[in-house]
């Protein structure tokens, strides 16, 4: 058991944890290094090995496969830069990146205001707010598959809602036009994921010290000014986390597209993640699909990192997706 000269911490500390770290350090000094038996590296080994084999190796393999041709049978053959040059000149690929960006942006613009307002509202401890929050949560329990199947049935032009409410849906064939299909994808995504972001904002809004609101109220700030000058600034870091989640989630949307639009009409909703699936598992061009996958990973990582950097907040530790 060695002691490093500078007191170190296991992993990044959250703000507000400083006190505990200090106490921890004090405790260590008191009992001395020999007094504490600590688990060795071997404890972390099984999980690390498992994660390496089933997540890190595949990730590395994506890069390798992007330089090969493979039709799913037999062995992949080296192909040099062929997949990459093909990708560069592929109009569908460029369009799919633009569509991914568009759909992600629509998702952020749609979900952020709704989940922010609902989350701050739900942070109050009133009974009716608790009941409504419990209902808001339900879409999050459904799989993306179930959500897409549900909306596909509800939006059926002949038997679904459009047939009964023409004043809202026009001619009813929403998925038949480019704008309609993109709108449906953005709406269904928001329907499913707004509850998650509402919950995140609710948790953070509850953590705002009441003193701040009390002080503002004594200064005569009304509800709106308190929201603008106290609540919003306090939720800044949460906004970064929530937006990173939305961006990564938006760039990798897949189930919704497969079930609702199959990338159509034409290729009007063929976003990158769906295009990758199509190239690989429908056209059996697994080398090309790997190249698209690598582009997706790089773009998602870069966008997340850029947002974290720009906002000056290291939120990557909370950048979880796929709940």
């Amino acid at each position: 058991m060695t002691r490093s000269p500078t007191p170190d911490r296991a992993g990044p500390t959250r703000p507000g944890r400083a006190d505990r770290t200090r106490a921890d350090r004090a405790a260590r000094t008191r009992s001395g290094p020999a007094g504490l038996t600590r688990p060795g590296l071997v404890w972390a080994l099984p999980a690390t090995a498992f994660f390496t084999v089933f997540a890190l190796v595949p990730l590395a393999l994506v890069a390798v496969l992007s330089f090969t041709t493979w039709n799913g049978i037999g062995a992949p053959r080296a192909a040099g830069l062929a997949n990459w040059t093909a990708l560069l000149h592929d109009p569908v690929m460029l369009k799919s990146l633009w569509l991914s960006a568009l759909l992600t942006a629509l998702g952020v613009l749609l979900q952020t205001p709704i989940s922010l307002l609902l989350g701050v509202w739900a942070a109050g401890h009133q009974r009716n707010r608790a009941i409504l929050s419990a209902i808001y949560f339900v879409p999050l329990l459904l799989s993306a598959t179930a959500v897409s199947v549900l909306w596909r049935a509800l939006l059926d032009p002949n038997f679904g809602l459009p047939a009964q409410a023409p004043w809202l849906f026009g001619d009813g064939n929403l998925l038949g036009s480019r704008d309609g299909a993109i709108g449906v994808l953005a709406f269904v995504g928001a329907w499913q994921w707004t509850p998650l972001h509402t919950l995140i904002y609710q948790g953070s809004a509850r953590a705002i010290p009441q003193v701040l609101h009390q002080a503002a109220a004594i200064d005569g700030a009304g509800r709106l000014r308190q929201f603008w000058h106290v609540t919003l600034p306090q939720l800044r870091t949460t906004m970064v986390t929530s937006t990173v989640l939305m961006v990564v989630g938006g760039l990798t949307t897949f189930d919704t597209v497969l079930i609702l639009t199959q990338g159509g009409p034409g290729t009007e909703t063929t976003i990158s993640a769906y295009y990758m699936y199509q190239q690989g598992f429908k056209s059996f061009d697994f080398g090309g699909a790997s190249a698209i996958a690598l582009v997706l990973v790089v773009v998602a990582t870069l966008v997340s990192l850029a947002m974290v950097r720009l906002s000056g907040y290291d939120a990557m530790r909370a950048g979880a997706e796929g709940i």
């Binding site: 595949p58 697994f286 990557m316 997706e321």
Partner: peptide, 14 residues
């Protein structure tokens, strides 16, 4: 946390 499952379906299949 930042690695989407979508990214690895091809090598996973392999």
């Amino acid at each position: 946390l930042a690695v989407p499952a979508q990214a690895v379906i091809v090598p996973m299949f392999y």
